[in-house]
Design a protein around this nucleic acid. Structure first.
Lengths: 339, 339
DNA sequence: ACTAGGGTTGCATTCCAAGTCAATTTACGG
DNA sequence: CCGTAAATTGACTTGGAATGCAACCCTAGT
């Protein structure tokens, strides 16, 4: 296939529109920018010509000179987390409504963050939303470049960064309190992978709440997925010699796996034989087969907050980092006997 | 807040690197482009200077002159479809591995497509992957601009376009055949919304297969979600006066809703009292509470094909549209009694 | 009629990296 | 040590839109 030198795909430029409309290129530029001063009649002429040619301003040329890309990097670790699709859909739509576009990065492994950042820089994004583990030096790279970042459901390791989180600790404390009130005394915890921020936070909160009541729970480390929930339930039952009152799972996917295991393998009925609780409030939690008792993250409010905070920080670069913590809503299912 | 005129956020440019390394800007450019001819020692000097300054080539300036953005638009109608998160994760990672970035667009309503397209054009994307309903004139707009598009799980209304699909018809035919062999004679179908391409395709295929055996199924139109699956099951039971052998749902989410309804409301046991099948092979299909019999879309192979086709078409703009149809894999659960 | 003032408009320049082309250096055979 | 081909290098131009500035228009006040 011979390589053409012709500007084959060269779309119409502002000059093309200008000459068709009989004005200068500057006029076209002003007609397409929000605050340009153009006479209404001129603008109309320009718009007509633009439509005729199918002209749309080139975002690259524009970004080059204005130093604004209208791009927001969204970095998410594992999209298969049942909670993220909803988050992502909300984010894209909200950002879109504000005139921003989403540049999506999804990590296969947490360790890929550095590679991803290298991919982010060339696009001069106006801001970033990160739902993946960032080290302080990685956050610092954003700061150095003057790119506002909002962490979603995590906070910086050391230095404070802007973030929006669901209050894991409060949620777990409430669950423990209610389970205790329901008379449970022997507990198991199925935790997420160690490299998950929320996972560890929930684990710590649950464990501490139990310890304060003098309870040392049995423990299993899962992977935040269905299969490891089931594995975990088996493992905890083994550890407890079959005497287990309640299982706290640090997310819903594992809780659902645990419920299925409890029902199908052990023939348990919930909440009579055992109580199982989760965290997140994902769609399947309310399905009739599970009716999970869990803490629902206020996804809509959280995403709205992320977008608002980010745009605010983009507008005012100097702002001090703000951290917003949203309380979760108790979802009363039938998977647990509470007090 | 006083507006600064200073180039506050101005990152280092190739000129900065050039002067620090004691070479010309061209040299820096060549050092960063794949086929530039630079002496190894010069390249090393440049890279050292670049690292010191934290320099990354500006994708906008590069795109402006090369007319390649390395951006791929991914347009998805509703991310909350249980099937799409996996698709999206696969797509981003595969595209990323090939040096492309994903510009994500998610539609709140199908009718928003035109708005979204307006948002796409300025970024001069190299290609697009569309899992949303596109009209022929919308596809034509991509063609006019010389932007390759691949449709995911749908084909063009009239004009042929490149596409990657899972074979709905074959899948539904197989399900019907197996259900018939299992002795079922009274059927219900729970379909998706009318504006879903795959939904209608599956519906037609299932209906035709049944008609060919002289069966006229009861029918309910759902919305592809859990709730409408349950509603549908109720409705079909009403229509059939309680005598229903099998229910075909055009996706898994509705099948799961139907199963829960059958179990909890009617006290049915599957597959003894009734058979329910779905389509997609999403994660929850294999959960112990459902063990859905369904057709699993080969998501990995399909996404790999999409990416390969798209990159191929970007490299060779003239290619005739190709359509690839992937057979689904029968997932034998326990929600249906088959022959 | 004359001028001040505001609103429009065009010219020329700017943003940054890549490609062109000619100049320069290097490598190597004779 | 020279000639020539090959490799390397830099000055300059390009791409498309935004913007400072100066020139211009028109209106309204006197």
């Amino acid at each position: 296939m011979p390589k053409k030198k012709q500007p084959e795909t060269a779309g119409p430029t502002s000059y093309d529109v200008a000459s068709l409309a009989g004005v200068s290129q500057s006029a076209v530029s002003r007609a397409f920018s929000k605050f340009g001063s153009v006479a209404p009649t001129t603008r109309a002429k320009i718009m007509r010509a633009a439509k005729q040619l199918g002209y749309q301003p080139n975002a690259f040329a524009r970004g080059l000179i204005t130093k604004k890309s209208n791009l927001i990097a969204v970095i998410i670790s594992n999209l298969t987390n049942l909670n993220y699709p909803e988050v992502l859909a909300e984010l894209t739509q909200r950002l879109s409504a504000e005139g921003n576009r989403v540049l999506l990065f999804s990590l296969a492994a947490e360790s890929d963050v550095d590679d991803v950042l290298e991919q982010v820089w060339p696009y001069r994004v106006d801001g970033a939303i990160v739902a993946a583990r960032l080290h302080d030096d990685q956050i610092q790279q954003f700061n150095d470049r003057g790119i506002p970042v909002i962490l979603y459901n995590r906070v910086g390791d050391v230095a404070p960064s802007a973030s929006v989180c669901c209050d894991s600790a409060a949620g777990e404390r409430e669950l423990v309190r209610l389970l205790m009130a329901g008379g449970h005394r022997t507990f198991g915890i199925i935790a997420g992978p160690e490299d998950s921020y929320v996972g560890e936070e929930r684990l710590e909160a649950a464990r501490r709440a139990l310890n304060q009541s003098g309870i040392e729970p049995f423990f299993f480390r899962g992977r935040f997925d269905y299969a490891s929930g089931a594995e975990g339930f088996h493992a905890l039952m083994d550890q407890a010699g079959g005497r287990l009152d309640a299982v706290i799972c640090t997310n819903d996917a594992m809780a659902i796996g645990a419920i299925d295991c409890a029902k199908s393998t052990y023939g348990f009925r919930l909440p009579d034989d055992i109580s199982i609780v989760g965290f997140d409030g994902v769609g399947p939690a309310t399905w009739a087969s599970y009716q999970l008792t869990t803490i629902r993250q206020p996804v809509r409010r959280m995403t709205a907050a992320v977008v608002a905070m980010l745009l605010e920080r983009i507008a005012n670069p100097g702002m001090a980092p703000e951290q917003r913590l949203f309380g979760g809503e108790l979802l009363l299912g039938r998977s647990a006997r509470l007090g």
